[in-house]
Computed example of a mutant assay.
Amino acid sequence: MKAFFEGIEDLFVNVLFAPLDFLRFMDSWWLANTLNWIFVIIGMVAMVYWLKQLKIFNDREEEDKSVTSHSYL
C-alpha cells in the first residue's frame, strides 16, 4: 500500500506539477502569475454570466417572493 501512495506522489510531484515549478522560478512576476490571472478572468466571466442569468429570472418574475413562514414556526 505504501508503494501505491508513493506512486501517486511521484505522479503529481514529478509529472503533473512540473510546469508549475517552471513558472515559479521565472524572473518576471507577471509571467509567473499568468495561470493565476487566467483563473481570475475565468471566474469574472462566470460571475458576469451568473448575474445575467439571475437578472433574466428576476425580470420574468419566476421566483415565489410571497412572505410566508414555514409551517413549523
Rank of each mutant, 00 (worst) to 15 (best):
F4K: 05
F4N: 06
F4W: 06
F4S: 02
F5C: 07
F5V: 09
F5L: 12
F5H: 08
F5Q: 09
E6A: 09
E6L: 13
E6Q: 13
E6Y: 07
G7C: 00
G7K: 01
G7W: 01
I8S: 05
I8G: 00
I8P: 00
I8W: 05
E9G: 03
E9I: 03
E9D: 14
E9V: 08
E9F: 14
E9A: 14
D10K: 15
D10F: 09
D10M: 09
D10G: 06
D10C: 11
L11Y: 14
L11P: 01
L11E: 04
L11F: 15
L11M: 12
F12L: 09
F12K: 03
F12N: 01
V13D: 08
V13G: 02
V13K: 14
V13T: 14
V13A: 04
N14A: 03
N14Y: 07
N14T: 08
N14H: 14
N14E: 10
N14M: 04
N14C: 07
N14I: 00
V15R: 01
V15N: 05
V15E: 11
V15K: 08
V15D: 10
V15S: 00
L16V: 15
L16W: 00
L16I: 15
L16M: 00
F17E: 11
F17N: 08
F17K: 06
F17R: 09
F17G: 00
A18E: 13
A18M: 11
P19Y: 04
P19N: 05
L20I: 07
L20H: 08
L20A: 10
L20R: 06
D21L: 02
D21Y: 05
D21H: 07
F22Y: 10
F22G: 00
F22L: 09
F22A: 03
F22Q: 04
F22V: 10
F22E: 01
L23D: 11
L23N: 12
L23M: 13
L23I: 06
R24D: 05
R24K: 13
R24M: 05
F25K: 14
F25W: 11
F25V: 07
F25D: 13
M26C: 09
M26T: 00
M26F: 04
M26V: 02
D27Q: 13
D27E: 13
D27L: 14
D27M: 10
D27T: 08
S28Y: 03
S28E: 08
S28K: 09
S28V: 03
W29N: 12
W29L: 15
W29M: 13
W29K: 15
W29I: 15
W29Q: 14
W30D: 12
W30G: 10
L31M: 08
L31S: 05
A32D: 04
A32I: 02
A32K: 07
A32V: 02
A32F: 02
A32Y: 00
A32C: 02
A32W: 03
N33P: 03
N33C: 01
N33T: 12
T34H: 02
T34Q: 08
T34P: 01
L35R: 02
L35M: 11
L35I: 08
L35V: 12
L35D: 03
L35P: 00
L35S: 08
N36K: 14
N36F: 05
N36Y: 12
N36I: 10
N36A: 13
N36M: 09
W37A: 06
W37Y: 15
W37M: 14
W37D: 12
W37C: 06
